[in-house]
């Protein structure tokens, strides 16, 4: 059997062996556990290992779960749109107008990551709070008479915080896609009569679509399942599906239901991701990669 393997394939197997084992233990095994759990039931501390669809029945029959899932999707779609729309001009500026020190600019974009995610969320609480930086400032300069309340402990705050947290992840893939565009294509478009605006929509944007799709997926997928931000700045109507999953695994002591919720939202996100990928490929489809 080993004689059938060439030296190179044995080398290859040796090289991927360890990472593959790691991925198996850290990714595949927990996933398998969650999926298995979702078909079991729990009664206080006892796990009933008979396979059943009861959890899924509950997920699809109780309106609270659907409300939460819809809200999660709605918030993450808004976050994604806001993030990608704001990230595009930044990436564009970086790629087309920054001539020197591009590396420095990229480095600066990562500055928010120098503190933990949790701290950044708390920071937004300080900024957006009732007696926060924003309200105090607006009161001081007399633009408002009493503190704004719609900026914290609701979905708006969740969108704002998440959009800020995920901006670099959207900027970078778009930047890479823009960097890859051969500048002579832009000159050719101009040479053939296009002004800057037409040229952008006919050449730059279509060629940046792979980056936009990547940015969309990178932001959308994790934000659906985010639970720290909604928990800290979301208030009650900013709670998302992940908070419910956390509750099921924790206080509610119903891990199988939590697992079923997790699997359901995972499948939904996967379907949406595939759809986005296919649409992106159709629009930018003729680009050879």
């Amino acid at each position: 059997m080993t004689r059938g393997l060439s030296r190179e394939s044995r080398q290859g197997l040796t090289l991927i062996g360890l990472p593959f084992g790691f991925a198996l233990i850290m990714l595949a095994a927990p996933l398998a556990m969650v999926i298995t759990f979702s078909f079991w039931t729990q009664n206080y501390l006892d796990i009933d290992r008979t396979l059943t669809l009861a959890n899924y029945q509950e997920v699809f029959s109780q309106p609270i779960y659907q409300t939460l899932l819809w809200r999660s999707l709605r918030i993450s779609v808004i976050v994604t749109v806001v993030t990608v729309v704001l990230a595009f001009p930044i990436a564009y500026y970086l790629s087309f107008h920054v001539k020197r020190n591009k590396a420095l600019w990229l480095f600066l974009i990562t500055v928010p990551f120098w503190t933990s995610y949790l701290l950044r969320v708390f920071l937004w609480k300080v900024i957006l709070g009732y007696n926060g930086v924003l309200n105090t400032a607006l009161l001081e300069i007399g633009l408002i008479r009493e503190p704004l309340t719609f900026i914290l402990y609701n979905a708006n705050a969740v969108v704002l915080t998440l959009a800020h947290a995920w901006a670099p992840f959207a900027i970078l893939p778009i930047f890479v896609a823009l960097e890859k565009i051969d500048r002579s294509l832009l000159e050719a478009a101009e040479d053939l009569g296009d002004g800057p605006f037409r040229r952008f929509w006919r050449i730059t944007f279509p060629l940046a679509i792979p980056g936009v799709v990547a940015a969309t997926l990178i932001v959308l997928i994790p934000t659906v399942g985010d639970f720290i931000t909604p928990r800290l700045v979301g208030g009650t109507d900013g709670l998302m599906i992940a908070n419910m999953i956390q509750i099921q695994f924790g206080k509610a002591n119903n891990a199988p239901l939590g697992a079923a919720l997790a699997v359901t939202s995972m499948v939904v996100v996967a379907l949406i991701s595939i759809a986005i990928y296919l649409v992106g490929r159709k629009i930018g489809g003729r680009v050879a990669r």
């Binding site: 002579s184 294509l185 000159e187 050719a188 040479d191 060629l207 680009v287």
Partner: peptide, 12 residues
Amino acid sequence: NMVFQSYAIFPH
């Protein structure tokens, strides 16, 4: 009108 060295054919 220009014929570019790289041809600059729009790939999409």
